[in-house]
Design a binder for these strands. Sequence first.
DNA 1: CTTTGACCTTATAGTTACTATAAGCTTTAT
DNA 2: ATAAAGCTTATAGTAACTATAAGGTCAAAG
Lengths: 138, 138
Amino acid sequence: MNKKFTVGQLATATGTKPVTIRYYEKVGVLPSASRDESGYRRYSVAERDRLLFIRRSRALGFSLDDIRELLELADQTEDSCAAVDAKVQVQLSEIRRRIEDLRAMENELKRLSACCNGGVIEECRIIESLSGRSTTVK
Amino acid sequence: MNKKFTVGQLATATGTKPVTIRYYEKVGVLPSASRDESGYRRYSVAERDRLLFIRRSRALGFSLDDIRELLELADQTEDSCAAVDAKVQVQLSEIRRRIEDLRAMENELKRLSACCNGGVIEECRIIESLSGRSTTVK
DNA sequence: CTTTGACCTTATAGTTACTATAAGCTTTAT
DNA sequence: ATAAAGCTTATAGTAACTATAAGGTCAAAG
């Protein structure tokens, strides 16, 4: 009873879709799964945990490339934890940057919405504002 | 002197890359550009403004599909401005949702980083936390 | 006047992280 | 026994571009 899960079971156990699990295997963040007599994938608890790690990291904004690196780091058990923390820090500042960007967008859109006087489009300042030269374009 | 810009000039004028401009034409958010004798694209000021509208809307988080709709709405000059504002509102709440998500991630990562005691990975709580069953996985 | 370099053209493939679809085999339930 | 559910593979599609190749055009410099 080492290999407990089929893809479908692993999927439900981790909130992933079977296709996605196979995709993870294909791109190498999950190792090639072992197969039962009829060629079905079979997963152990350790493999489930690895997948949970992946899903959780993805939910925190790490890319699959990031995750591949994190997993490698995790395997080097004598290495310093600092390398892992460094990645967390990078991710953290990346997320903060994104929050700032979104806040700026939010303010712009609020401003835009305030321009709507409920008339016809000809007099609508939103469209005008959106094409306006006044603000910087990325 | 109606058609002032080549792709490259339009690109610099709008902070877009020539390839992207051609891409916009291909997917239909920009109309097919007229050509000069040698087949080069030529753009008018009106076309530049349309592109500015697109870039600005993109920078505010609208998808190209959204933008296509906005442009259609803008052409219906007698229609109510309310439809446009509605799209702005949808976008606004979408952006607020994303900000909330990112804030949650930020907090998680801050918590994670606090777990790093500078030792070796074997004792590092970050990796452990990332695979932990305690928190909900998307 | 020619040549070099910058700029234009098209078409195709790659990117990220999946999702959708098709065609077919296996297992489970009725 | 048969049908539904679940597994297999492979391929294509998604968003919004970016990169690359292979070639035509044009302005300036030698």
